[in-house]
Write a protein that binds this DNA or RNA. Structure first.
Length: 461
DNA sequence: TGAAATGTTGGGGCG
DNA sequence: ACGCCCCAACATTTC
């Protein structure tokens, strides 16, 4: 009895439903990972970097258990067909994807191989609760976050994470080398300053560190990019190096153990529910990454200013908080959440550039780029999303900067050319009497841009 | 998970 | 003592 365990965005051994079931069903488990670039939304560049290291880590953990993972590159349907035939596979087990295109593909795969006599089993542990299980009182799906989150909080039942199962493999598998997949950047190697450590072990360490130190002040510190107040679990959750159930369960345990952190724990769990809500919306509106959720926004005519878009991408807008964020993104593959909102507001409401431009840049540069979260986040800021920020909520980059990076610590970390700028001018060096060398003047006047945006947004109401 | 514009209040300076 | 004005400080409304 040979069982194929198809790894996807669940690159972990613990608390993995499909893996656990596969190991119970069979004493000959072949783990497989298929690098498939054919779906419409394939991996962004930063994700590929992460994927490489994550697969290396998974491979090493399995080897310690005398199990070889089968790596192959190609179209999933075709590769599975080859593998099933070659290794005389009886069962195919995997965890569901909630990306609509992948889910559709998976359903057709299930049908196809079931017909051929393979037992195909799908499991669900990428979300707390499957989107089709949560509806409001009138049987519709929720379109507003707060009532949705109440429904989640009252129905989620986190369970103790499943242990790493005993896994055994009899079949000798011959794998491809993932070095040949070209996952890592070469010239230029923009990943040189990445400080991330992909892999299941680091995912768990990150969680434990967060629970021990930053969770208690999360409520107050999470919006401060100059602090290390966030969990930094997003890429691990995206690739499934840790399960959402594991994180939820661990935070609850910590809350029971130490009731004084309750308020912060609730605020953090609500953030996890935003992730859940993003997938929920994507489930009911599969075009979320491509199409305005609120169709009134289809009438909005975005500006296509290539010079401004380029300045935004490279962090040369002359607005320090925006530029610091964009350079953090480029240099580290990540950006603090508060700053994501600021740079997104700046792109869509100051520069009047289509949110899809921002979405696509984030997709390519974020190690935690995630179809649902990225799309929902951008539409939220742009105002086109479900339960989105209203069009008139326009961030003032200088005020946001003063409020959330009061001493300019975050700005100076990413903009070394401003390291000697006094605090008084760090948020807006253009006001400084000192001539700044190597830092651009603001590419637009925020006050003017704001008025223009308000007028335009009003027009589509 | 805003910010700006506008309105209101109340203390203090001053004639 | 009183009215008047100024203007923070805070509150409300508007975009």
């Amino acid at each position: 009895m040979t069982t194929l365990l198809w790894f996807r965005n669940d690159l972990r051994l613990s608390d993995n439903s499909a893996l656990t079931a596969a190991c119970q069903a069979s004493d000959d488990v072949i783990p497989v990972f298929i690098f498939d670039e054919s779906p419409k939304r394939s991996y962004g560049a930063a994700q590929r970097w992460w994927l490489y290291h994550s697969l290396k880590s998974l491979d090493a953990s399995l080897r310690k258990k005398r199990v070889n993972i089968l790596f192959c590159k190609g179209k999933a349907e075709q590769k599975l067909q080859e593998i099933i035939k070659k290794y005389k596979v009886n069962n195919l087990y995997f965890n569901r994807s909630f990306e609509p295109d992948l889910n559709q593909r998976d359903q057709s795969i299930t049908k196809r191989f079931s017909k051929l006599g393979v037992e195909v089993k799908q499991f669900s542990d990428y979300l707390l609760i499957d989107p089709d299980k949560i509806k409001n009182k009138s049987g519709e799906y929720f379109k507003v976050y707060t009532p949705y989150s109440r429904a989640i909080f009252s129905s989620v039942e986190a369970r103790k994470p499943l242990p790493i199962p005993k896994i055994s493999q009899k079949t000798k598998v011959i794998t491809e080398e993932i070095e040949a997949w070209g996952l890592l950047p070469t010239k230029p190697d923009w990943s040189v300053n990445f400080e991330w450590q992909p892999g299941e072990t680091h995912a768990q360490n990150t969680l434990v560190n967060f629970l021990e130190s930053d969770l208690k002040s999360y409520k107050d510190d999470r919006d401060r990019p100059d602090f290390s107040g966030t969990s930094r679990l997003s890429p691990y959750l995206h690739f499934g190096e840790i399960s959402i159930n594991h994180v939820w369960y661990a935070v609850l345990q910590e809350k029971y153990r130490n009731p004084s952190i309750e308020a912060s724990a609730e605020v953090y769990l609500k953030q996890l529910v935003w992730r859940e809500f993003s997938y929920y919306l994507l489930h009911y509106f599969p075009l979320l990454p491509y199409k305005n959720y609120r169709s009134a926004f289809d009438r909005f005519s975005w500006e296509s200013n290539q010079a401004c878009l380029a300045a935004w991408k490279s962090g040369e807008t002359g607005f320090p908080i925006v530029d610091a964020g964009m350079r953090e993104l480029w240099q580290s593959g990540y950006m603090h959440n508060r700053v994501r909102m600021i740079v997104a507001s700046f792109l869509t409401k100051d520069l009047l550039i289509d949110w899809r431009e921002g979405e696509s840049w984030f997709w390519d540069t974020l190690v935690d780029a995630d179809l649902a979260n990225n799309a929902a986040g951008w539409q939220w800021v742009a105002g086109s999303g479900a339960d989105a920020a209203p069009y008139f909520r326009i961030f003032n980059p200088f005020l946001q900067s003063k409020k959330f990076d009061p001493d300019g610590v975050y700005i100076r970390r990413w903009l070394p050319e401003l390291k000697d700028m006094p605090n008084k001018y760090i948020h807006n060096p253009a006001e400084s009497p000192i001539d700044v060398v190597g830092y651009p003047k603001p590419i637009i006047d925020h006050g003017v841009a704001r008025k223009k945006a308000l007028a335009l947004y009003k027009g589509i109401k």
